Computed example of a mutant assay.
Amino acid sequence: MNIWAKMITALRGGVNEAGEAVVDSQALRILDQEVRDAGEELKRSKDSLAEIMARQKLAEEKCKQLQKSIEEHEGYALKALEKGDEKLAHEVAEHIAGFENNLTMERESAQNFAQSVEQLRAAINQAEKNIKRLKQQVDTVKATENVQKAQVAVAERHSGSDSKMRTAMESLERIKERQALKDAQIKAAGELAQTTGDESLKSKLEAAGITTSGSSADDILARIKNKKSPE
């Protein structure tokens, strides 16, 4: 296969993939339309059923009328025979034969219509069940689609929230570190100020001839002698 044939094949593949992507993105809309089309077909089938049932009813009515005409003309033929008019009776019999032929055809038509009605009614009942089941499945698919969209949205928001939460926690930790450092600086400054104040006072006392050192050994011994009770 030369390069041009490969390029054409690749383009055809790209067009096919693009078409499939469009179909997938519009799947629910297409499915809804297909369900509506099936409903329209079912409606037309019901209209056809109603028409066939009407034709069946007309054929049955014709059968009743023909049967009535046959019985009526049989009475005429009997009366003609009673009067001895063989020719008239034969003529009436010819009419009866025509009625019976028509009755046979109308009965066949009525039977054919009845069979068609039975078959079409069964097909319509099955189609109604199929469409009902299809609509239920479409509702399930739509509900699943909505749930999945919600889950995707929640997942995306959760992912974004995690990122923002991490950023906020990092900012909070930095603030805490700055506050801890500031607090330590304040304490150190206080301790430094107190130490400096004590040394300054000690220097002033020593300059005035006032010692701030602890008691000497002679002082301690004199204190002990004073505590000793006389013998």
Rank of each mutant, 00 (worst) to 15 (best):
E156I: 05
A122R: 05
E41S: 09
M53W: 06
L49G: 05
Q56W: 01
A155N: 09
R178T: 13
E72R: 07
G197E: 15
T196Q: 15
A93W: 03
E71T: 03
S216T: 15
I131D: 04
G160L: 05
S159T: 12
L192I: 02
H158Y: 11
K6C: 05
E17R: 14
I220G: 01
I220E: 10
R55C: 06
A153N: 08
A93V: 11
S45G: 15
K149T: 13
L192S: 14
I52R: 09
T196A: 12
D85F: 04
A222I: 07
D139H: 03
Q65L: 11
G197I: 02
E17A: 14
K182M: 04
Q111V: 09
N102D: 15
V147A: 09
A123K: 11
I3C: 08
K135R: 14
I96Q: 00
A21W: 05
A184F: 05
V147H: 04
E60I: 08
K176F: 10
K79E: 03
P230W: 08
G209K: 02
K132Y: 06
G214V: 06
Q111Y: 10
M1V: 13
L11K: 06
P230A: 07
E199L: 09
A89L: 00
G98R: 07
A38P: 04
S229W: 10
S200H: 06
H90L: 09
T104S: 12
K79C: 01
N146D: 12
